[in-house]
Simulated scan of single mutants.
Amino acid sequence: MATGYATVNLGFVAAKPEKKNTFMDHLLKVEAWLDRRRTSRILYTLTDRDLADLGLSHADVDGLNEEAERLF
């Protein structure tokens, strides 16, 4: 059975800094904000008992809204 070994020169190549795609970053933030907003609207329609079944309360839903607002 033949065994091959690959060698890589790891010490002499400097890593290139990643280019930040700020447009994509902003787009992802908007998408996350919209998703949290949609989720909180749905959760607000549930009763206290329904939220308790999920292990949540209306205070948790308010916290979700506050977290979404911090994105911007």
Rank of each mutant, 00 (worst) to 15 (best):
M1L: 07
A2K: 13
A2R: 13
G4E: 11
Y5L: 08
A6Y: 15
A6L: 14
A6T: 13
T7M: 13
T7K: 14
T7E: 15
V8R: 11
V8H: 09
N9Q: 14
N9V: 11
N9M: 04
L10W: 07
G11H: 07
F12G: 07
F12K: 09
F12W: 13
F12P: 08
V13P: 12
A14T: 07
K16G: 08
K16H: 04
K16E: 14
K16D: 12
E18Q: 05
K19R: 11
K19N: 11
N21H: 12
T22R: 15
T22Q: 15
F23R: 11
F23E: 15
F23S: 11
M24L: 14
D25I: 12
H26W: 14
L27Q: 09
L28C: 05
K29P: 01
V30P: 01
V30N: 07
V30W: 14
E31H: 02
E31F: 03
A32Y: 11
A32H: 08
A32I: 03
W33E: 05
W33M: 02
L34S: 01
L34P: 02
L34D: 04
D35E: 11
R36V: 00
R37N: 00
R38H: 00
T39N: 01
S40F: 02
S40L: 05
S40V: 05
S40G: 05
I42C: 02
Y44Q: 07
Y44M: 03
Y44A: 01
Y44D: 07
T45M: 06
T47W: 09
R49C: 00
D50I: 06
L51S: 07
A52N: 06
L56A: 09
S57F: 10
S57W: 10
H58D: 02
D60A: 04
D60M: 04
V61R: 03
V61F: 01
V61G: 04
D62W: 11
D62I: 14
G63Q: 15
G63V: 04
G63S: 13
E66M: 12
E66T: 09
E67G: 03
E67S: 08
E69W: 10
L71T: 00
L71K: 00
L71I: 00
F72S: 09
